[in-house]
Design a protein around this nucleic acid. Sequence first.
DNA 1: TTTTCGTTTGGCAGCGCTGCCATTCTCGTG
DNA 2: CACGAGAATGGCAGCGCTGCCAAACGAAAA
Lengths: 338, 338
Amino acid sequence: MQSEAEDGTQTGAMITLTDVARAAGVGESTASRVLRGHGSFSTKTRESVLTAARSLGYVPNRIAGTLASMGSKLVGVVIPSLSNIVFPDVLRGANTVLVGAGFQPVVAVTDYDPEREESVIESLLSWRPAGMMVAGLEHTERTGAMLRNARIRVAELLDTDGEGIDIVVGFSNRKAGRVSAQHLMSRGYRCIGYVGHDLSLDLRAAKRFAAFRAALGEAGLSIIGEEIIRAASSIEAGRDGLARLLERCPDLDAVYFSNDDMAIGGYFHCLAHGITIPDRLAIFGYNGLDVARSAPQPLSTILTPRVTVGEIGARLVCSDGPSAVVDIGFELIEGATT
Amino acid sequence: MQSEAEDGTQTGAMITLTDVARAAGVGESTASRVLRGHGSFSTKTRESVLTAARSLGYVPNRIAGTLASMGSKLVGVVIPSLSNIVFPDVLRGANTVLVGAGFQPVVAVTDYDPEREESVIESLLSWRPAGMMVAGLEHTERTGAMLRNARIRVAELLDTDGEGIDIVVGFSNRKAGRVSAQHLMSRGYRCIGYVGHDLSLDLRAAKRFAAFRAALGEAGLSIIGEEIIRAASSIEAGRDGLARLLERCPDLDAVYFSNDDMAIGGYFHCLAHGITIPDRLAIFGYNGLDVARSAPQPLSTILTPRVTVGEIGARLVCSDGPSAVVDIGFELIEGATT
DNA sequence: TTTTCGTTTGGCAGCGCTGCCATTCTCGTG
DNA sequence: CACGAGAATGGCAGCGCTGCCAAACGAAAA
C-alpha cells in the first residue's frame, strides 16, 4: 500500500520501474527494454508498458541506470568564467552537439583559478562523466593526473599552444598575437601600445600579448606603452585603460587590446573624446564579438570560432576515435578601426 | 588480481571505496564515514583512510552515493538561451551560491521553445536533482505537472507576472514596460515607436511590450510605428530594425526596444547616420547590459538584477522554507539617450 | 574488580536499474 | 506432427555506496 498510483498525480512514493512493470503485467527487464527501446519485445507488450508508464507518471531514474550500466551520459564542461560571452558561446556549441547525442552537460566555473579548476574537476569526476571538456591546456599537475587517470575522453579547448591530454580543439593564440602585430605594422602603424586585463590568470591572453610583442620586436619595433588593468576584462576597463594610456603616451597611433570587450571600451573612449579612428588612433581587438562587428565602425579584430570549438570538441568527446589536435584557425577581420 | 593499486597511477579497474577500506584495514562503512566526515571515528583511523584514499587516487562515485542516500546534489538550471549574456548572468549568480552550498548545476537550454523545455526538464528530472531553477512562469501543462510531482524545490526566475509553482524570484516585466512608457512620456516624447524581436517566443518581452502599449494608451497615446524582427534579438537586428522603422515613420521622436541588444543596435545606427541622440531621437532599452552603460552616451534602460535573481533563486532552492514570491524589482536608469 | 554508558567499528541490506542467462513461446521446416 | 531457430520474456545478481543496527571497545563510575 505505497507506490501504487492510478493517474498522473503523485501518490505515496516515487514511481519505479518495478511499479510500471507490475502495472503493465510484465517483468522488470521487459519493461526496461521497452522503455529504452533496446532488445526485442512484442508490439502488445510495448503498448502496455508505455501506457502504464505514462499513466503512472513514471520518470526513469538515471542515477540508478547509470550505476547499473556503468556508463553515464554526463559530460563535464569546465570554463573559466560566465561573465564574458566567449565561454557561453563555447558552451552553446557544446550543448547543441551533446544534447543531440543524448548527453547532458554539467558545467563548472573556475574563475581563472587553477586551484579552483582542480577542485571543480575533482568534483565533476565524481559523477563519472562520459567525457570532459576543459578550457585551456594549462592545469595543475594533480588536475592533469586526474584527467589522465579518469579513462574518459578529455577535450581541451581554445588553445593549441602546448601539450594536450587527449583531444585539443582550438587555435593558436600565439599566432593570433603575431598576426595582429603584423596587421598593424602592415598598415603602417609604428607607435603601438597595449591595453590589457589581468594576464596572470588569463593565460591565453598572455600568450597573445607575448607573441604580439615578439612580432613587433622581430620588426625592430617595441610597445611604446602598456596599461594593464588589475581586474577582469570589461568595456569599462578598456575605456579607462585607454584613457590612462593616452595620457602617458600621447603619441600612440595604434593600440592592441587584450580582447574585444577592452577594445570596445577603447572605441567608446575615442567616440566620447572625439578621437578620430583610425586616423588619429587605430584599435585592434580579439574575439570578433557581435558588438564589435556591428559597431558604426566595425572593429578590426580576430574572429575566433568559439561556437565551432564547442561543437567539434563535443563531437570528438562523444566519439571513440584516437587522440587528436584540431586547429580550426581564426579569421582576421579587417574592420574600420585600423 | 584486479583493483589493487600501489601509487597514484591507474591499475586494473576503478578504485572503489572497498579498495580504500581494505588498504586502510578498516570496514567500508568506517571508510565511508571518514571520507564524508560524518559520524565518529578515531584520529588514527582517519589518517589511515585518508592516506589510503590519497595513495590509491580514489575518486568517490557520487552516482552510487546518490542512489544509496536517495538525495542528489544536482540542481537543474533551465534557461532559454546562451546567446544573450542575460542568462549566463543568471547562471553565474546561481552557480556561485550552488557551488558554495555543495551543489552542482546541470544546465539545459530550451531555445525559447516550450516543447523543448518540456523535454529537457523531463530529462533533467531523471537525474533526480535536489532542485530545479527555470526561467519564466509559462510552461506546458505537462511541464507544470512534472515539476509539481517531482517533490523538489522549484524556482521560477525573472518574472513575477503570473502563478508560480513553488518559489518565484524576479520582477514584474509588465511594470517594467509601464515604467518605461511613463519615463518616455514624462520626458515629453509623443511619437513613440517600437523595435522588437520575435515575441511569440520571448514571453517576457511580450509582457513588457503589452504593458508599454497599455500605458501609452492610458495617456491617450499610441505606438505610431513598430518593427518586429522575426529572429532572436541582436545588435544587428536592432540596427536594421530601427533603420526600417525610421524609413516608414520619419516623425518618430523616441523608440522603445525589446532589450538592450536591440537598443544598442539602434544606437549604433544613429551614430552611423548622424542622428542626434536624444534630440532628434530618443532610445530606451531593457536589461542594463555593460555595453549599454559604458557607451559614450549611457543608454536609458531598465537595469535588471540578473545575477541577484540567480543568487536568491539558488539560495531558496537550497533552503527548506515555504513557497514564496520574491520581487526584487529593477532600476530605471536615466541615461543619456532619453 | 565489575558495571555502565558512550565511542568506534563492521556487516549487510538495499537504492533502482541493467546485463546476463535461462526459459518459454512462435513459427517455419522436414 | 515433431523439431529446431529465433523471438519474447522473466529472474536475479550486482553497480558502489549509505544507513541502520549490533557488536566491540574503553574509560569512567560504583
